[in-house]
Design a protein around this nucleic acid. Structure first.
Length: 528
RNA sequence: CGCGGCGUGGAGCAGCCCGGUCAGCUCGCCAGGCUCAUAACCUGGAGGUCGUAGGUUCAAAUCCUACCGCCGCAACCA
C-alpha cells in the first residue's frame, strides 16, 4: 500500500490582514481556529493547502510606510516578515503566504478583472457621495447624518461630489445568490450568520459595487483603464485564487478550487458571502464551498473588570508574542481554543488565562502525565514487561470510546473547538485521574506488582488517546506526550481513528522519554 | 418596530437546535482522604424557583408570546 490513490483535497484560507500594525490576539484567534482545522484534516488524510497573507494595496498602508520614511514595498515586506514570525511562533501550519503587492498576484488579478469585464459584468458609471476635501475621501451617508453634514476629523462641511468610476454588476447576481444561500445550508456557517446574510438580501437587496479608485499610485491599475486602480475587493479577495495559481498555473488552480472553507471575521461576512461568490460567477468560476464567520475576542480590563473591544484608542492591544513569551505557544493555543467559542465571541484576561492553564493543562493533563511517568519509571524501570500483545482495558467506566472519539470529531469539524476540548478533559482526562486514585497503583505495587503494572498499562493508554485527540490543538505538547512511549504508530501518521480503539502493540510498552532521577520535566509548569 | 448577541449557584461558562435520564463543568469556599504527581490528585458539602410574566405540553433552562436588563453594529480595529 505505497500508493495513495485519490487523497481528498482540502483547501482553506484565513482572511488576509492589513499590515497597518502588528497582529494582535484577535487576529491570532482566527489563524488558530483555521490551523486546528488544517491540522485535523491533514491527520485525517486530506491533501491540505492552507493559505494566508497580507492585504497591502491600500491607502492606509502607503500612509504608514510614508510615516516611517519607507517606500511601500519595503514597508510591506518588513511587515509580512513580522506577521509570519508571529504565525510561526504560534505554530500556524500555513502552506503559503501571499502578499498582494507581489507581481504575480497583480498579474493574476488583472487577468481576473479583465475576464469579468469581458463577460460584461463591469461598466463605467459615476459615484456620487459626500466628500471631505481634507481627508480626500468619500464619507458614508451615515457619517454625514451623524455629524450634521461635517467631517468628524476636519469639522468642516462635507461637499456633494460625483466622480467617474467602474462598477461591478453585483445586483444582477442577486437572485442566483439568494437561491444559492437558501439551497446550501453549509455555505455560510454558523447558521445565525447565514440567516443574517439571507435576511440582508431580502430586506435591502444588492447594489452594484464601485470597484475602482482614481489617481492612486500604490495599487493595481485596471487593465482596461489604467487611470484607475482596483479597489479593495477585486484585489484582496482574489488572493484566495491567485495564491493557488489562478491565471498562470491552471492545473494547480483546478486541483484546489473551490475553496473548502474561508475562515473570516464576522465583520466581513457580507463581502465573502455576497460579493465574492458573485465575482467568481462573473468570471465563470465556482463559489467557495463554505465561509466560516468566527466571533471576536474582547479583552478583560483586570483593573476595572469591564470587557472591552480590542482597539488602539483604548490602548488594550495585546501582542500574541507577549502571551507566548509569558508561557508557551501551546498555552496560548489552548486558552483561546478552549475558552473562546470559535463561532461566537470570547474574551481574554490574564487572570482567566492563568486559571485555565493551571487547572486544565498543568493540574489535569500535565500532572497526569507526570504521575504516570514517575510511577512507571520508579516501579518498573520504565518498561511494562510482558505487555506485548496485550489489549489494554478501558479506564473510564461506561465510556464508549468509539462514540466518544466520534463526538470529538464532530465538534472539530464544526469548529466547536471549545466543546471538543471540554469533552477530552471532562470525559477522559479527569476520569483517568479518578481511575488512578481508585486503583492506587502506588499501593498496589507493594502487594500485587502485576496488578499495579496492569493499572498503569491501562492508564497509559489514556495519554495515547488524549495526545492523538489533542494533536490539532496543542501540537508540540501532544507530540511530547505521545513520543514519551513506544506506541507503534509513528506520530506523523496517527489519525483520530487510532484513538477510537484500544489495541495491543507488538512490543512491551515502555517509556522512551528522557528521565532524570526518575522524573520528567513538567510539561506545563504551573504559573503563579 | 433597525439588525444581531447575551441574561443559568460568589466569578466565568456548558446544556437550549433534536423538550423528560439536567440542573452540569471550571475557579473560589468549607470538611475529609491520599501521598505516585507540577503546594498536585481524589471524596463529600454549602450555594441556583436556569432575567421576568404568561402560554403550549403528561413534562420546559430547553418550544411559543410579551416584557425587563446588558453588550456590539462611524472610525483605528478581525
Amino acid at each position: 500500500m505505497t500508493d495513495t490513490p485519490q487523497k481528498p483535497k482540502w483547501f482553506q484560507t484565513t482572511a488576509i490582514d492589513y499590515p497597518n500594525s502588528r497582529p494582535h490576539i484577535g487576529t491570532a484567534f482566527e489563524k488558530l481556529g483555521a490551523d486546528v482545522q488544517a491540522r485535523y484534516r491533514r491527520m485525517e488524510g486530506f491533501d491540505v493547502f492552507f493559505l494566508m497573507g497580507t492585504d497591502e494595496n491600500t491607502l492606509k498602508v502607503a500612509d504608514r510606510a510614508k510615516e516611517q520614511g519607507l517606500d511601500p514595498q519595503t514597508y510591506c515586506n518588513d511587515m509580512a516578515k513580522q506577521f509570519r514570525a508571529v504565525w510561526d511562533a504560534l505554530d500556524i501550519s500555513y502552506d503559503t503566504f501571499i502578499q498582494t503587492s507581489h507581481e504575480r498576484h497583480k498579474q493574476c488579478c488583472r487577468k481576473f478583472v479583465q475576464k469579468v469585464y469581458d463577460n460584461g459584468h463591469i461598466y463605467k458609471g459615476s459615484y456620487e457621495g459626500w466628500y471631505c476635501p481634507g481627508c480626500e475621501e468619500f464619507k458614508s451617508d451615515k457619517v454625514h447624518a451623524e455629524n450634521a453634514g461635517n467631517c468628524p476629523n476636519h469639522k468642516r462641511p462635507l461637499v456633494r461630489r460625483a466622480e467617474p468610476c467602474w462598477f461591478f454588476r453585483l445586483s444582477s447576481f442577486q437572485d442566483r445568490l439568494l437561491k444559492h444561500l437558501k439551497e446550501n445550508p453549509e455555505f455560510v456557517q454558523p447558521e445565525s450568520r447565514r440567516n443574517e446574510m439571507i435576511g440582508f438580501i431580502e430586506a435591502e437587496g444588492l447594489q452594484d459595487l464601485n470597484i475602482s479608485r482614481h489617481g492612486e499610485q500604490w495599487g493595481i491599475p485596471l487593465p482596461f483603464d489604467p487611470e484607475f486602480t482596483i479597489y479593495v475587493w477585486f484585489d484582496a479577495l482574489l488572493t484566495y485564487i491567485t495564491g493557488i495559481g489562478y491565471g498562470d498555473d491552471e492545473a494547480t488552480f483546478r486541483k484546489h478550487w473551490p475553496c473548502d472553507t474561508h475562515f473570516i471575521g464576522k465583520d466581513i461576512t457580507r463581502f465573502h458571502t455576497h460579493i465574492w461568490p458573485a465575482m467568481l460567477w462573473a468570471a465563470g468560476e465556482e463559489a467557495p464551498r463554505q465561509v466560516f464567520s468566527h466571533g471576536f475576542v474582547y479583552v478583560r480590563n483586570e483593573e476595572s473588570g469591564t470587557v472591552e473591544k480590542i482597539s488602539k484608542s483604548l490602548g488594550n492591544i495585546i501582542d500574541p508574542m507577549q502571551v507566548i513569551g509569558a508561557c508557551s505557544a501551546d498555552a496560548f493555543r489552548y486558552f483561546f481554543l478552549r475558552e473562546c467559542p470559535f463561532p461566537s465571541d470570547g474574551e481574554f484576561g490574564w487572570g482567566r488565562f492563568a486559571e485555565v492553564y493551571n487547572s486544565e493543562l498543568a493540574n489535569n493533563l500535565g500532572n497526569l502525565f507526570s504521575r504516570e511517568m514517575t510511577l512507571t519509571w520508579k516501579n518498573f524501570n520504565g518498561v511494562f514487561d510482558g505487555t506485548a500483545g496485550k489489549v489494554p482495558e478501558s479506564v473510564v467506566p461506561g465510556l464508549d470510546l468509539a462514540q466518544f472519539v466520534c463526538d470529538v470529531r464532530g465538534h472539530v469539524e464544526a469548529c466547536r473547538y471549545n466543546l471538543a476540548l471540554q469533552e477530552v478533559v471532562q470525559k477522559f482526562l479527569t476520569p483517568t485521574n479518578q481511575y488512578l486514585e481508585a486503583n492506587a497503583p502506588w499501593k498496589l505495587v507493594k502487594t500485587d506488582k502485576d496488578a499495579a503494572k496492569r493499572v498503569l498499562f491501562n492508564a497509559t493508554q489514556s495519554l495515547r488517546v488524549a495526545s492523538i485527540l489533542l494533536k490539532p490543538f496543542i501540537p508540540k505538547s501532544a507530540e511530547a506526550i505521545y513520543t514519551s512511549f513506544n506506541f507503534p504508530t509513528p506520530w506523523a501518521e496517527v489519525k483520530y481513528a487510532d484513538a477510537a480503539e484500544l489495541k495491543a502493540q507488538p512490543d512491551d510498552l515502555r517509556v522512551t522519554a528522557t528521565v532524570v532521577d526518575g522524573k520528567v520535566a513538567p510539561l506545563f509548569p504551573r504559573i503563579g
